[in-house]
């Protein structure tokens, strides 16, 4: 058990290290950081001084280690546009992003999981087919199109809701709906197939053949087993909360981290981009780690498998 968690933790740290390496490589390959950060019109002496003070005159692997060290100390650089620490700027925006993504996540779970379970238990019925059609549509309709359609209907045509900006709860409805609907469709489809797979296993058929009431077979055997793969997807959804917010925040002019990323990429505000990249990686890795821990608790076979491996 301990060994299993230790391996997971080690892998998580490796992933973070790879993201940092990725940022470093991309940063170095994109050109002379001195010119990138100071601008091309700066006199050569100033560039030289900058290189010295940032250690850019040292061998590349020393720079790499320095870069790693700086990140470990939480020194993530200054925003070029606002001349503030990039980390602080991003942190300021996190509450706004959470205000959208957390309700959206709850919506996804509240619709997606029951719909998937119900569809699997009533396979082949009209409800099941409707869930499948919704799931396919939910995949094919990207969130920016869904968002614009919702705006067109509820803001432009009906005038019931605002088309963007920050304000009361009415400003949050369309963005949350946009994020929730697409995710719910994917989650429903996944839960359905996880559930169907479990329902087809011999021990479920044995349990129901032994005369146990179907409802308790479902509750006692099928649901817990189908939960195992579903937890993975939920972990992925949690981990990609910020990534999912990028498009939606942009469409609805919502001042969160996602919109900040788009603006920062547009103006090449590298420090801000880097902070958001690391933040996304950290959420992703943390939620994966939690999923792995849950796995270890939910699935005893996995613990034994891990010990064997």
């Amino acid at each position: 058990m301990l060994r299993y968690f230790a391996i997971r933790l080690f892998r998580a740290l490796i992933t973070i290290a790879m993201v940092v390496t990725f940022a470093f490589v991309v940063l170095r390959m994109s050109g002379d950081p001195a010119i990138l950060i100071m601008g091309p019109e700066v006199p050569p002496e100033a560039l030289e001084a900058f290189r010295k003070s940032w250690g850019l005159d040292q061998p590349i692997w020393v720079q790499y280690l320095n870069y790693f060290g700086a990140i470990l100390r939480g020194d993530l650089g200054m925003s070029m546009r606002d001349n503030r620490p990039a980390l602080d700027m991003v942190m300021d925006r996190i509450p706004a992003t959470l205000a959208l993504t957390v309700p959206a996540l709850i919506l996804k779970l509240a619709i997606g999981v029951p719909a998937g379970v119900w569809a699997a238990l009533h396979q082949g019925t009209g409800f099941d087919r409707a869930v499948m059609v919704m799931a396919v549509a939910g995949f094919a309709i990207p969130s920016f199109i869904l968002a614009l359609v919702l705006v067109l209907v509820f803001a432009v045509t009906l005038g019931w809701l605002p088309s963007g900006g920050q304000g009361g709860v009415e400003h949050m409805i369309l963005p949350v709906l946009t994020m929730g609907i697409g995710g719910a469709a994917a989650l429903a489809r996944f839960t359905r197939s996880a559930m169907l797979e479990v329902l087809g296993r011999p021990y479920i058929r044995t349990a129901s053949a032994k005369g146990l009431p179907w409802a308790s077979v479902v509750r006692g055997h099928a649901l817990p087993n189908a939960a195992i793969p579903t937890v993975t997807l939920i972990g992925f959804l949690v981990g990609s909360l910020i990534a999912g917010a990028v498009v939606v925040e942009s469409v609805f002019s919502w001042p969160g981290v996602g919109r900040m990323l788009v603006v920062a990429v547009g103006s090449r505000d590298l420090a801000v981009v880097q902070v958001i990249l690391l933040l996304v990686a950290a959420t992703m890795v943390t939620s994966n780690l939690i999923v792995d821990f849950l796995y270890g608790v939910l699935d005893p076979r996995l613990r034994q498998g891990a010990r064997a491996a």
Binding site: F22, S30, G239, A243, I276, V285, N288
Partner: peptide, 19 residues
């Protein structure tokens, strides 16, 4: 694993920001 774990949109945006 790394590629599968990181949201592609975010990685793509970072690369575009730098290049």
């Amino acid at each position: 694993d790394f590629q599968a774990a990181m949201p592609f949109l975010i990685m793509a945006l970072s690369v575009l920001a730098f290049f």
